[in-house]
Simulated assay, not measured.
Amino acid sequence: MTTPTTEAPIADWVDPADLMRDPYPTYRRLVRDMPVAWVPALGRYLVTASEACRAIEEDQETFSAAVRGSGATMARAMGATPMLRKDDPDHARERTAINTTLRPKSLRAHWAPIFERNARTHLETLRSCGPDEADLNRDYAAPVASQNLIDLLGLRDVTVDDLRRWSHAFIAGTGNLLDDAEIWRRCDAAQDEVDALLAELIPFYRKAPDESITSALIASGLPVEQVTANVKLVISGGMNEPQHAVTNAVWALSRHPAQRRRVLADPSLWAKVFDEVVRWQSPIGMYPRETTRAVTLHGVALPAGAPLGVVVAAANRDPDAFARPDEFDIDRERRPHLAFGSGVHLCAGHWAARIAIGDVAVPLLYAELPDLRTDPRRPESWDGWVFRGLTELPVTWHA
């Protein structure tokens, strides 16, 4: 049955502060009552239904990744427009350059031992903090994600603190729609540091190519400004999601002890844990698109140039796509989710995250500390909705 075309409902009740605290009550109401809605507080249409989000990703000619606003600030933050804000064929040309590095075969053969080395190193840091002081995000998840990214990119003489600072600066710059001068100051400083590093690495990798993403971008023949912009893109987007997948997994299993016991008894279930964690508490909550023409989406008429927020975190709890969507259940029927997007813009690093976090970092935690759990004696802290995760997660275990 064809849904009649209507003007978009106005969700003037959506409060950005509520989204920051816990977006899921807002998402439930949007999915149920107005899955494509204009949100005045955000200055964009939010798309929350799974079917509508997938329709957007299947039609890049109508729903462009080359958005104004955040697209312009991203180009400013990174010195040029990276592949994330391009459509095919330009997007495909740059994406193809790194595909070989990020394929499962290459990741398992070359990178998995490196991921394990990094996880074991920072597991010792976690242990050294002890069961009364350890914070899973600070002591394990964040440094493991940072070091994995440093290695994948082939960055030399870079610390996890350097990478974290650069990532935060580039993300803040991309979101700097109000043109805050202090944000640009930090972002420009990060740009200068990364540009200086790449000025040394580009000639090095031209002479001595290896399996790193930076080496692959250089070998592809892309202009230097596109190499540097895409390295900065990976720095900005490749740390938070794996980091939050670690903490979200431990948080979820601590609250579902029966499922935790089953996984510890049967390690083959770790892949299901990873998939359910990123569906249930999606680290990437929303990303932008823009209409190139007037179009009807999910029965709602949208004008050309409409700014859209594709809310994949809401779509991943759409009851039309998932039974009992608000429950964490590793036994649910396997259905494709949108935690990594879909279509041509499916996250290039999704296999790296699955292997580094789902196969290595989280299983290793429980292999070494089988009674690891969140510590109710100390407060935890969540933050964000565009990117959402635990910024503080105290954990404990029997010493």
Rank of each mutant, 00 (worst) to 15 (best):
T374K: 10
V234T: 14
I171V: 15
D162K: 07
L338R: 02
T73E: 15
G173I: 05
V67C: 05
D210W: 02
F387V: 13
A271P: 07
P203H: 15
D151I: 07
E7Y: 08
P283Y: 11
R68S: 13
R68Q: 14
A216L: 09
P4K: 13
P303H: 08
N316E: 03
A339I: 05
T81N: 10
D329R: 03
T81K: 11
V14H: 11
A134W: 04
R332N: 00
K105M: 06
Y140C: 00
I150C: 05
T48D: 09
S236M: 15
I355S: 01
L346V: 14
P23I: 02
E116A: 01
E368L: 04
L201C: 10
P379H: 11
W397A: 01
C53R: 08
S50Q: 08
P131N: 13
R120D: 00
H256E: 04
A199T: 15
D180H: 05
V300P: 02
A352M: 14
A112I: 04
S146Q: 02
D132F: 04
C187P: 02
Q226F: 09
R373D: 12
A294V: 04
L178I: 13
V234C: 10
A196R: 15
V362R: 00
V227K: 11
W382R: 15
P363V: 03
A41H: 10
D318H: 02
L153S: 05
Q226Y: 11
T291P: 04
K207G: 13
S64K: 05
L222H: 12
A314D: 06
F274A: 03
S167G: 14
D329W: 06
N240M: 12
V360F: 00
R85W: 11
E241I: 06
D157F: 09
Q60K: 05
D188I: 02
V312W: 03
T159V: 12
P288A: 13
T174Q: 14
D371Y: 01
T296D: 15
M286P: 04
L346F: 05
R117G: 00
W280G: 05
P23H: 15
E61Q: 13
A92F: 12
W280S: 03
I114M: 00
S50W: 15
A52G: 06
I56W: 11
I218M: 07
V194G: 07
S236Y: 09
A323E: 15
E57Q: 12
R324I: 06
E368H: 04
P379Y: 13
P303Q: 06
W251T: 07
A17L: 12
P325L: 01
D139W: 00
V250I: 14
R108N: 01
L253P: 01
I235T: 10
G69P: 06
D210S: 05
